[in-house]
Structure formats: structure tokens, C-alpha cells
């Protein structure tokens, strides 16, 4: 029964969602609404599962003095500290005024935003370094890829007017970039999308028919 019940649930849910997609009947809509609501509830419960797993693993590493244990400790402090501050702001605990002042103005704006923006900005440095080290014209395909990449990069930005033939370079690169993106790229993308859609359909059918059971770790 441990296998049969989950498979039966998946088959029923899959069929109900598929039926709702094609049927305008009010009952199919009601079933679909209900299943989607359950889906978001499960998603929220998954957050709790994720947090409990994170806490369990972090505590284990802290107690065994893993080389990364100070970071794990910091992670737990931030996790529960943020929860505590949020609860304190909502309920007015510890004399903290209500609202979102600490969470939004201090933690989010002054810590989280600059940290995340900095991490993402580092990409520019790594891309430049990788461009020098890894992008080699080793084959015809690699050379085409490099050339297309360079053309798209130039077409994406304004050419300074003091450059010789700036207008011509600007116009030509924009036109070439437009051609590459709107025809070559779009054609390739459409082929990939169609292939992926057919693959998704086949996998979905296998799951709904109970043939594919990898989600049960089988």
C-alpha cells in the first residue's frame, strides 16, 4: 500500500488537472481550484521541512566541530533572529514598535540588498576572467559561437561617437545582432521548446499512467 496509494493519488490528481484544462464544466474548475490551493499549501509546508532539515544538518556540523561550523552557527542565528524580529514587530514584543521598520529598512535594505547585489555583480569580474581563459576557437562550432557572442555584445551597447566609423559600426552591429537574435536564436529556441514540450508531455503521461515512478525513489 505504501506504493499503491501515492501512485493512485498522482494518477487521480494528474487526470483531474488535465480534465480541468480542457473542460469548462464548473465542477472541473472547482476540483482544479482545490488542487491548486493544496499545491501552494504543500509548497509552504516544504519551507518548514527545508528549515527543519537545515537546522538538523547545521546542528550536527556545529556539534562535530566541522571546519565550517562558525558559518553554520551564523546561519542559525540569522535564521531564528530574523524570525524573532519579524514576530516581535508583528506582535509588539520587547517594546519594538509595530510595522516593518527593522525588517524592511534595516535588514532588507541595508544588509540583504547590498549583499545580494554585490554577489551578483561579481559575475562581471568572473565573466571577464573566463573570457580570457576559456573561450577558445578550437573548432568551427566554437569559432561561430565566439563570433556570434561578440557581435551580440557589440550590438547591445552604444558605440562612442569618437570611434572611427562609429555610426556604421553601430548600425551594422545592431542589424547583425537583430538578425542573430530574431532568426538564428529564435529558430533554435523554438526547436528546443518544442522538443522539451514533447518530452514533458511524454513524461507527464508516463507519470499519470503510473509507468514513471522515480518520484517514489524507485
Amino acid at each position: 500500500m505504501k506504493r499503491e496509494i501515492p501512485i493512485l493519488l498522482v494518477v487521480l490528481c494528474g487526470l483531474a488537472i488535465t480534465w480541468a484544462f480542457f473542460s469548462p464544466a464548473p465542477m472541473s474548475r472547482a476540483v482544479n481550484d482545490e488542487l491548486l490551493a493544496w499545491g501552494t499549501v504543500f509548497f509552504s509546508v516544504a519551507f518548514l521541512l527545508g528549515i527543519s532539515n537545515l537546522v538538523r544538518i547545521s546542528l550536527k556540523q556545529i556539534s562535530s566541530r566541522h571546519p565550517d561550523w562558525p558559518y553554520k552557527l551564523l546561519l542559525l542565528l540569522v535564521l531564528f533572529g530574523y524570525l524573532l524580529i519579524g514576530a516581535a514587530e508583528i506582535h509588539g514584543w520587547f517594546g519594538i514598535p509595530g510595522g516593518e521598520n527593522i525588517r524592511r529598512d534595516w535588514i532588507y535594505k541595508r544588509i540583504f540588498m547590498p549583499l545580494q547585489a554585490t554577489m551578483f555583480s561579481l559575475l562581471a569580474f568572473y565573466i571577464a576572467s573566463a573570457a580570457f581563459r576559456a573561450f577558445r576557437a578550437r573548432s568551427l562550432e566554437a569559432t561561430l559561437l565566439l563570433t556570434a557572442g561578440a557581435l551580440v555584445m557589440i550590438g547591445q551597447v552604444p558605440i562612442p561617437s569618437f570611434f572611427p566609423f562609429a555610426d556604421w559600426i553601430g548600425d551594422t552591429s545592431v542589424r547583425l545582432q537583430g538578425f542573430l537574435m530574431a532568426y538564428v536564436n529564435a529558430a533554435g529556441q523554438k526547436a528546443i521548446i518544442m522538443g522539451a514540450a514533447l518530452g514533458t508531455l511524454a513524461t507527464g503521461l508516463r507519470i499519470v499512467l503510473g509507468i514513471e515512478r522515480s518520484y517514489l525513489s524507485e
Binding site: A128, F132, F135, A150, M153, I154, I159, P160
Partner: peptide, 24 residues
């Protein structure tokens, strides 16, 4: 930002060319 991006893109293209010249 667009002009900064222009020069950054040109630098990256320059680095790709330089890296390939050394490679060949």
C-alpha cells in the same frame, strides 16, 4: 551605465581575442 557596459564589452572581446592569439 550603457557607456560603462560598452567599454566592459569591448574589454571582454579584447580579452577573448588576446587569449586566442596566445593560444594559436
Amino acid at each position: 551605465r550603457m557607456l560603462i557596459q560598452t567599454w566592459a564589452h569591448l574589454l571582454i572581446i579584447g580579452l577573448i581575442i588576446y587569449g586566442n592569439v596566445l593560444y594559436f
